[in-house]
């Protein structure tokens, strides 16, 4: 009996020692947004195979990521919601967009094929405000003269958990509707005038799937992989665009990044004939003068590798890589902003 206990203790000690040695090798740690987690995890896996360096990313939510990087408990933070330049300055952080995604309205309507329905910004805002209550409302009919729309009540579904998806969606509605801005506003969670709250993309998706006449919003990757009935949108230039990789990239390319300090740029309602109106970038936050310069330098190497070689993996997971012009701007900002204690730039 005693020998058995000893044996077990020895095994336990050995395994602790092993995990300790593994833990020692992980020198990049990150925490934050759940939305980019699949691609960060994939990149980390690929990067480890190529270079042997590993990255530990905890998808605890944007709010948590911001808190942790402010407390300097992680090498980098990740957030779907960019910090305002003054907030960045106060916390001694720098930020940049890492990858782009998009948000797509999805519906559950009998007799309407995926991509058949078109909505305008105004109609979308009025639906989510509860002012348009039925699918045969003249405002919707005018946009869709050919679709068969019955006098069916609209059931609105939204995220109940605080989320970057909600932030970008409500940011869009605030930009396009003064009414929305005054009554609801933009945030990762808002006081919804109507509707059912569901947890996560999967919750919204199943609420929409189960409720006839429902409309909700989910991340593009989710809508695509589940073959959901997505909606085309009228963009800022008045053109009808479908949610595709091209339309998301167009939105990112048309944003005026060079003139936005700290890359504070939310990609909703961008100009351009091909721009998808509810596009969203997800951001990385890094201390300007990190305590652990070696880890930060390693993290910058990782992100630079991801810009160079991670594009294909991102597209496979339905994320959109950044346009090259933007990557050049980001690298310039690294050189100018991220320095070690002696004032030497950490990026190379």
């Amino acid at each position: 009996m005693i020998s058995m206990i000893l044996k077990r203790a020895a095994i336990a000690a050995a395994s602790v020692a092993m995990t300790a040695s593994v833990a020692f090798a992980i020198d990049i740690s990150g925490a934050g947004a759940t939305f980019p987690y699949p691609i960060y995890a994939k990149w980390a896996d690929m990067y480890k195979k190529e270079t042997g360096s590993s990255l530990n990313y905890q998808s605890i939510g944007s709010g948590g990521g911001i808190k942790q990087v402010k407390a300097r408990t992680v090498t980098f933070g990740a957030s779907d919601q960019p910090l305002k330049p003054e907030e960045l300055e106060a916390a001694g952080l720098t930020q940049w967009p890492q990858v782009i995604g998009a948000i797509v309205p999805v519906v559950n309507l009998d007799g309407v094929a995926p991509g058949e329905l078109t909505l305008s910004a105004d109609a979308l805002a009025k639906i989510f405000l509860g002012e348009i209550k039925s699918w045969d409302d003249p405002a919707i009919k005018k946009l869709n003269p050919k679709a068969k729309l019955a006098a069916q009540a609209i059931a609105v579904a939204h995220r109940s958990d605080g989320s970057g998806t909600t932030f970008n969606f409500t940011n869009y509605l605030s930009k396009v509707s003064a009414d929305w801005k005054a009554k609801v506003g933009e945030s990762s969670a808002v006081e919804w005038p109507i509707g059912l709250g569901a947890k996560g993309n999967e919750g919204v998706a199943s609420t929409v799937a189960n409720t006839k006449g429902a409309i909700g919003y989910v991340e593009y990757a989710y809508a695509k992989q589940n073959k959901m009935n997505f909606v085309k949108m009228v963009n800022k230039d008045g053109k009808v665009v479908p949610p595709t990789t091209e339309s998301f990239q167009a939105a990112a390319a048309n944003a005026d990044w060079a003139k936005s300090p700290g890359f504070y740029q939310i990609l909703t309602d961008e100009p351009g004939a091909k721009s998808w109106p509810i596009t969203a970038a997800t951001f990385i936050l890094l201390p300007k003068q990190p305590q652990d310069a070696a880890a930060t330098a390693e993290a910058l190497k990782f992100f630079s590798w991801a810009f160079a070689k991670g594009g294909k993996a991102a597209e496979e997971l339905d994320y959109i890589p950044l346009p090259e012009s933007l990557v050049a701007l980001i690298k310039k900002s690294w050189a100018a902003n991220i320095k070690d204690a002696d004032g030497k730039a950490l990026a190379n």
Binding site: G61, S160, D161, G162, S163, A189, L196, G197
Partner: peptide, 26 residues
Amino acid sequence: NAHKISGSLIAPGTTISATIANEFTE
């Protein structure tokens, strides 16, 4: 998950623990 008090039992509502679980992370 709607922060509303409704007289109807079939209307959406919320509970204390559901609110915390939903919103604390973000």
